[in-house]
């Protein structure tokens, strides 16, 4: 599903990713763990195609296609989804209108028929219930006045609505209490499927108690320095990044 080869990325002229390799087959959930400044967010923004994240060499193949040439919206239409660490507040755009606009923009780009407002509403309500997202939240301006947990749940709702082939969750656990964490994890686990790949990016092992990954990779100074099974996450938690990667974190 995702094949990253020798990826070098610079931000503001500074190289952050320095030859990153990562391969995620369909049906698997991988975790990338790393200390602050290791390049976790750069990886997620680069995958989503954010401006200012310049690929200087290497490649990102998604379903065999090079991602670098695609705009962020084209990537979304092709089934790529990034749950942001800090979902953006947009006053003046109601959450429901945003969801409908985004869903239909993706469908239009794929040459599919648009879904009418009533059907979108039904679809959203059905997914929202499981995530404990209220009607009131859906009416409010996008993410405005939402708590940290509400914002993250709304990200998961979007993932459920768009049904991506590849989902990247960037520090989705940050700022969540244990109940919210469980709710979010359940939402993610419900999306696991043989046709879908997921990448969970996190600083802490905690989230991985709930979303058990197929593989765990450790990111340090812009490279994957070691990989292993789910037990690697527990080991990291116990011993710290320093011991595992053989350098100060």
């Amino acid at each position: 599903m995702l094949e990253i080869r020798d990826l070098h990325v610079t931000v503001d002229g500074k190289e952050i990713l320095k030859g990153l390799n990562l391969s995620i087959p369909a049906g698997e959930v991988h975790a990338v763990m790393g200390p602050n400044g290791s390049g976790k967010s750069t990886l997620s923004y680069t995958l989503a195609g954010r401006e200012g994240y310049d690929i200087t060499s290497g490649s990102i193949l998604y379903k065999g296609e090079e991602l670098a040439a695609l705009t962020p919206d084209a990537r979304a239409a092709k089934g790529f989804f990034l749950a942001l660490q800090y979902p953006v507040e947009i006053p003046g755009v109601s959450t429901m209108v945003f969801l409908k606009t985004a869903l239909n923009a993706q469908r239009r780009a794929r040459g599919e028929d648009e879904v009418d407002a009533v059907k979108v509403l039904r679809l959203v309500r059905e997914k929202a219930k499981a995530l404990n997202i209220t009607e009131d939240m859906l009416r409010r301006p996008l993410n405005v006045g939402f708590s940290g947990g509400e914002k993250k749940r709304l990200e998961i709702l979007q993932m459920a609505l768009f049904e991506p082939s590849l989902a990247v969750l960037d520090e989705t656990d940050s700022g969540l209490d244990i109940d919210a964490l469980r709710l979010v994890a359940e939402g993610v686990n419900a999306m696991r499927s043989p046709a879908r790949a997921m990448l969970v990016i996190t600083h802490y092992q905690r989230l991985l108690d709930y979303i058990v990954p197929t593989r765990v990779h450790v990111l340090r100074a812009g490279q994957i320095v070691t990989s292993g099974g789910p037990e690697l996450a527990k080991e990291l938690e116990k011993k710290g990044y320093e011991t595992i990667t053989g350098a100060a974190a």
Binding site: R50, E51, A76, V88, I90, F98, Q106
Partner: peptide, 15 residues
């Protein structure tokens, strides 16, 4: 706001 613009585009909404 670039961040808001990116967020909408990352959800499939063209520029």
């Amino acid at each position: 706001d670039d961040t808001a613009l990116f967020y909408l585009r990352a959800r499939g909404i063209p520029m």
